[in-house]
């Protein structure tokens, strides 16, 4: 057995420096939920573990003066779920976090870890795609902002470079009059993984005629990465929810997405489910936008 090195980091600067010197051998560990599974399954055998889980500066959740919701990469799913700042500015993240596994996993798993893993069935990436979030990475050259919609590049592959650490997630201020919803389909009530398909929708409507004037959406479990579809989101503009628009969305889902069929569900069935839950999430988000009160 090769011995593994372990370094506990206290600051982002130390972590970036340590990662640079560890090079390809460095494995950043935060809550350990995803990496723990990969290690237990012997799919990953770390040479040098860089433990960033105690960097307090990465645990903050706050709303900046410009109205940006900034969530530190190390905020746990449970902290997001119970955050007053999140509830006040972005209830979609509360609705999404409540769907993540169960409390004992939410207590360790972090929002940053989930994004860095880039799992196509993870919940946070789907919601953050709908919200048009920006991911801020720290590296040897300083900070770099990456739009989440360009972040998920391929199977478990993200735009984060091997010498970068995810520092925070920034969610632009949600304009008034918006509505948002997260919807997840799973066979089990909790802890389901293999069978989930999820959709997040954020909408804003014209207060006078109810037309959709802004739309963002994310989809999970329907491809090799979490998916953002510009074509479908743009197609909602100037529309109001009606059977015709949902029929069009269903057609687009079948055309645009490439779910991976598995031993439980075929690709075609997953497309069908995605269309159904995307419609439900859209309806719920729209109703909330029209009602003028986001779900708390």
């Amino acid at each position: 057995m090769t011995a593994c090195l372990y370094t506990r980091l206290d600051t982002v600067d130390d972590a970036v420096q340590c990662l640079a010197s560890a090079g390809e051998d460095g494995h950043v560990i935060a809550g350990g939920v995803a990496l723990g599974i990969l290690m237990n399954e012997r799919l990953v055998k770390p040479v040098h573990l860089l433990d960033i889980s105690r960097i307090d500066a990465l645990k903050r959740i706050e709303v900046t003066a410009e109205g940006v919701l900034s969530i530190g990469a190390l905020a746990t799913h449970q902290e997001v779920l119970t955050s007053a700042a999140v509830a006040a500015t972005c209830p979609l993240l509360i609705e999404m976090s409540s769907e993540i596994a169960c409390e004992r996993i939410r207590n360790r798993g972090t929002i940053g870890g989930s994004i860095c893993l880039g799992d196509p069935q993870g919940d946070p990436p789907v919601a953050l795609l709908a919200l048009d979030a920006v991911v801020r990475a720290a590296g040897p050259q300083g900070l770099r902002d990456i739009p989440i919609r360009t972040f998920f590049q391929d199977v478990y592959t993200t735009a984060l470079q091997s010498d970068e650490i995810l520092q925070e997630i920034r969610i632009p201020r949600i304009p008034d009059g918006g509505g948002m919803a997260y919807h997840k389909f799973s066979a089990r009530r909790a802890m389901d993984y293999a069978t989930t398909v999820s959709a997040a929708v954020q909408l804003a409507c014209d207060p006078d005629d109810g037309r959709i004037i802004n739309a963002g959406l994310g989809l999970g479990g329907v491809g090799v990465t979490p998916v953002w579809s510009k074509a479908i989101a743009d197609g909602l503009l100037n529309a109001t929810p009606c059977p015709e628009i949902f029929a069009w969305m269903r057609k687009m889902v079948h055309e645009e997405l490439s779910p991976i069929g598995d031993h439980l569900y075929s690709a075609d069935y997953k497309s069908h489910v995605a269309a159904v839950i995307l419609r439900r999430a859209t309806e719920r988000a729209y109703n909330r936008a029209v009602a003028g009160s986001d779900r708390r």
């Binding site: 372990y6 506990r8 560990i29 350990g32 939920v33 723990g36 599974i37 237990n40 573990l49 433990d51 889980s53 449970q78 409390e103 004992r104 996993i105 207590n107 360790r108």
Partner: peptide, 13 residues
């Protein structure tokens, strides 16, 4: 005081 899975928690953490 918080429930966690001890199979995914490294002892050194």
């Amino acid at each position: 005081g918080q429930p966690v899975s001890s199979c995914l928690l490294l002892a050194c953490q």
